[in-house]
């Protein structure tokens, strides 16, 4: 039984890491109705920028601030040259634009900073310690604390601030939002910048675990079922979805995997997500869209 709980706890902690990436998707979807396929590339770009600056001798916090600044410039460039031209276009057009952006950002990252693999030490111990016979790591607990803090800050931002409420209005109907005087360009810039910040945080945590390398952009594959389960518009849903995915994929790999030849944890979360789609298409916490026809 203790092994079961060990797997369960390990899965829950892994799930928090998935949630971190999923939050970036939700931010942009919530504010603009765009499914930002480039989120993984933003994670890669931000982490690669940070570690490259660090290796060039910049102190940690200066490297962090400069990386954040570069992410802001990237957000500005995306708003100025891509999104502004596509206002009120269909969601699929915007999705395709972010698909293109994804490749551009990945290419840009490798052109600017090279293709090498970098180690990243955030100074947080990843060695295990036992609590009631369960193995925990300081790093996992730190990642959970960061994710929890982000959720609280972003929830307050979206629900309590004027900018946050304006962002929700833009997502509901960009034309109506423009008609009441909301500055769409400024809001999109803000939300892409915040998504860049979340990408940087996720990139640093994932980078410390995987090494900063191209594969960082693939962590989005773990975020997609989280989004389907949690809902595309809920930051809290990201955390709950992450926990469900993390725990279920680990338990499935250990207890069902041997009967199916092993290696099932990549596709099992998608099975779960499909089931959720069938019974709850908007996810656990997503907003149901009702359209008049």
């Amino acid at each position: 039984m203790s092994f079961f709980f060990e797997v369960l706890v390990g899965g829950l902690l892994a799930g928090v890491m998935y949630s971190l990436v999923a939050i970036g998707f939700v931010l942009i979807y919530k504010a603009s109705g765009v499914f930002n396929f480039a989120q993984g590339s933003m994670v890669l770009f931000s982490a690669l920028t940070f570690v490259s600056l660090l290796e060039r001798g910049y102190p940690f916090w200066l490297a962090f601030l400069l990386s954040l600044l570069i992410m802001l410039v990237l957000a500005w460039a995306i708003e100025r040259w891509v999104l502004r031209k596509l206002v009120n276009r269909s969601p699929i057009t915007l999705f395709m634009a972010t698909l293109g952006l994804s490749y551009i950002i990945e290419g840009l990252a490798q052109s600017l900073w090279g293709a090498q693999v970098h180690g990243l030490d955030l100074g947080i111990n990843d060695e295990p310690f036992e609590v009631f016979g369960l193995l925990l790591s300081q790093f996992d607990l730190f990642a959970s604390a960061v994710a929890g803090t982000l959720v609280i800050i972003l929830s307050i931002f979206f629900n309590k601030t004027r900018t946050g409420i304006a962002l929700r209005a833009v997502a509901d109907d960009p034309l109506a939002a423009l008609a009441v005087g909301i500055n769409l360009q400024r809001l999109w810039l803000i939300v892409w910048a915040v998504a860049g910040f979340v990408g940087l945080v996720a990139g640093l945590l994932w980078g410390a675990r995987l090494g900063v390398q191209f594969s960082l952009s693939l962590v989005v594959l773990k975020a997609l079922p989280v989004l389907i389960i949690g809902g595309f518009t809920s930051i809290t849903g990201c955390i709950v979805g992450g926990l469900i995915i993390g725990a279920s994929e680990k338990l499935a790999e250990i207890f069902i995997g041997p009967y199916l030849g092993g290696g099932i944890e990549n596709w099992f979360p998608y099975v779960l997500a499909m089931l959720f789609l069938l019974v709850r298409p908007a996810g656990l916490f997503g907003e149901r869209q009702i359209e008049r026809v």
């Binding site: 092994f3 797997v7 390990g10 680990k250 944890e265 990549n266």
Partner: peptide, 12 residues
């Protein structure tokens, strides 16, 4: 499973 960025269950 490819790419191998999560291995908690295998190592447990």
């Amino acid at each position: 499973p490819h790419p191998g960025n999560e291995q908690q269950s295998q190592w447990l």
